[in-house]
Design a protein around this nucleic acid. Sequence first.
DNA 1: TTTCAACACGAAAACGTTTTCGGTGTATAA
DNA 2: TTATACACCGAAAACGTTTTCGTGTTGAAA
Lengths: 370, 370
Amino acid sequence: MKTFSLFHYFKVKIDRIKNNVYLYSEISIYLMKRKVTLKQIARELDVSISTVSKSLRNSLEISEDTRQKVQAFAKLYNYKPNNIALSLKNKKTKTICIIIPEIIHHFFATVISGVENVANENGYNVLVCLSDESFDKEVINMEMLANGSIDGFIMSLSKETQQKKDFHHIVEVINQGMPVVMFDRVTNEILCDKVIIDDNLAAFNATQYLIDKGFKKIGLISTVDYVSVGKLRTEGYIKALKNNDLKIEENLILKIEDTENFEESIANLLANNEIDAVFAVNELFAVTAIKEANKLGKKVPEDISIIGFTDGIISKYSSPSITTVSQNGVKMGGKAAKMLIERLEAEEEDEEQYKTEVIETELVERESTK
Amino acid sequence: MKTFSLFHYFKVKIDRIKNNVYLYSEISIYLMKRKVTLKQIARELDVSISTVSKSLRNSLEISEDTRQKVQAFAKLYNYKPNNIALSLKNKKTKTICIIIPEIIHHFFATVISGVENVANENGYNVLVCLSDESFDKEVINMEMLANGSIDGFIMSLSKETQQKKDFHHIVEVINQGMPVVMFDRVTNEILCDKVIIDDNLAAFNATQYLIDKGFKKIGLISTVDYVSVGKLRTEGYIKALKNNDLKIEENLILKIEDTENFEESIANLLANNEIDAVFAVNELFAVTAIKEANKLGKKVPEDISIIGFTDGIISKYSSPSITTVSQNGVKMGGKAAKMLIERLEAEEEDEEQYKTEVIETELVERESTK
DNA sequence: TTTCAACACGAAAACGTTTTCGGTGTATAA
DNA sequence: TTATACACCGAAAACGTTTTCGTGTTGAAA
């Protein structure tokens, strides 16, 4: 029994501790070695577990003398309370889970960063789960963790979930009393706190920006409609055109389904139409548009202007760098975490109404527009 | 007491269950509502907790009859065992923690992705902690989680930790019997499992590649030496030059300390020297070199060739796309997770010797070299 | 000397599991 | 009828905490 031998390593030292001779300076060297529990300290010091616990928490019930003795001993063995036991007792884990479709998307990475910051400031840990855009993985993750492992969820829906419109797993979790905050890819069918950007407005502004520059034939590279943000951004684009009495031309609108091999579709869009500007709903589409334009002998921004969405690594370091709608992921994640934690620490479900926070976007002008 | 009223909602149904009339088809509708425990089921069914537990685990000690009754009831109330309680009992949390300096670096994001995959396959969850390149945050995170919250660590050292060379927090954790796997930014001062790439060799190969193309004046953009990978890559570069009897010119070697505002340094390097090729130790430096070269009127790859390190988003989508040393983060994370889990599930610390796995790199040829 | 408060500490319950061990009751064999 | 076996079930310990309540000792006041 390794845990026992531990107590005989520094017999001399311990006896001195017991006799209230505290040698703090000598103690730090012996910090190492296995986990020690209240029970073990209690046994060794010939007091009860309660006494040890109270001593360490500086309870007034305990005499100055034993308190110091216990604390010195605990320090010697580097006692730290077991978090799992505390979680069980308190019915709180101080851990929140964020479920995102993919981590390699820069935007989601920044959101995690924002969540982590705020969570840590408030003493929470962050569990990251990747749904991989899969409905099943989303469900499994949630069911797995909803059984005491965490205190609440922050999530952005997977594509498949948005397509199926099946949200039973989320409803169940909420019904069990566990708070959920959705961000970015949300749905109206679930009642919970949400934090989003005004995709519609942002797209409208971006398109308007192009129109103001004098462009008439503005292409749109979007996603299929079941991706909520794709749909909203498409609507914003259309609204801007209508507002300026420009014709909506179906062949200028490209809706990409597959995230692989979309280069050809974009090349076709650019080749077969007299487009003088493009609004792309993400930075991948934007940078690909630049590449394909170059291949067709069209220079950016001289021959064609391009605006992207999401201010990530690509937009910043592409040549030319890309004018884009900046969507502050860090702020978004931070806000989501704040909302979740506030709800967790509210006096037992005030059942106060759910809120939807809108993070403002900003158009970052770079080299891809003129 | 909300938890009680629950038991009176569907009184009729329950009575039928008790009388062994199992109506599975009707059950699914009532899945919702709060967490139910073994104790509650036991009380309601007038059996002991042990019986309920055994029934649900299909113990042979329990009669077919009560087993079915209990299982039907548990299903009705969507019983799921409490993970925290299980963790406490089993002294295993089935959670591993990955500590990385920053999540917005594409490479680290891919590592997380690899860790997540392997972890999930083996029934583990992944807790992500960001050290933010800070020693203190690294220490706090580790101390916080080493108290039962997780089963093991996967980590890459923060810059500050590498600079201070203070690894006491890691030693302590290991001494407590918690396995640690280090990746990418590792140190020889710690004995544990590691997974790295052969930075030296990879840099050597990349430099050799440039030399083979006929370049003589090859610049190096590296980091300061306390960043282990920066140092190793620098050594590889120097070795390649020496091997080919090329002069090592100090003014062709740029060591960047600050990750902000390094553009000027790079511009100076390119402006003040007759450089015909550059090897950069990460993709940020590589893409910046391209930008600065362009500003100086030098075209890539016509006037100057550039090789980067880490095959990330930037290298792929930059124009021109960047020839780079591909460092497979997913594979690296997967390997690290595999090593950690194997150690966790080994028959109680065989104390088998620690291993260091080397992930092979690959030179991905793109447009930035000719 | 008796009474009472203050003090210092311990026992035990609770959180939700799993598992070991022991104890019923019934049926079968002697 | 008695002994044995077996099927079925419950009590209790264990994981590591915190907290409530109870209890014994001490000293001072009556």
